[in-house]
Nucleic acid binder design. Structure first.
Length: 101
DNA sequence: GCCATGGCTAGTA
DNA sequence: GCCATGGCTAGTA
């Protein structure tokens, strides 16, 4: 496990319940502003997760972007269970729910 | 060569 | 809707 990967995992683990971060935001906090896709890759490869609240990471528009076969419903249900409201069946309001930096 | 992005233009309405 | 981005893995040598 590389330092960048460890940082990313640490950051995601610290997203509070009922809050979300974007892929790019996680990358930025981990010190690589343009490595959003790498954050995606890490999450994807760890989808059989190490107790990671992966469902609290969404894209820059607040959308759930997982394919249905993977965990779309799971992510949605997990978020709703924490009190996060889903608009238009796939979107969270970042104004309200995104962790401020 | 992968990836669950993101930021930009082109081009429609 | 295009494509640059980047850290990592797979898989060859």
């Amino acid at each position: 496990m590389t330092p960048f990967t460890e940082k990313v995992i640490h950051i995601i683990k610290n997203i509070p319940q009922g809050k979300v971060m974007t892929y790019g935001q996680v990358a930025r906090l981990a010190g690589s502003p343009r490595a959003a896709r790498q954050v995606v890759r890490i999450l994807h490869s760890m989808s059989n997760n190490h107790h990671l609240p992966w469902h609290r990471v969404v894209n820059v528009k607040g959308e759930i972007v997982i394919k249905r076969e993977d965990g779309f419903q799971e992510q949605k249900l997990n978020l709703e269970a924490e009190g996060v409201e889903i608009e238009n069946s796939n979107k969270v309001n970042l104004e309200t729910y995104q962790v401020k930096e």
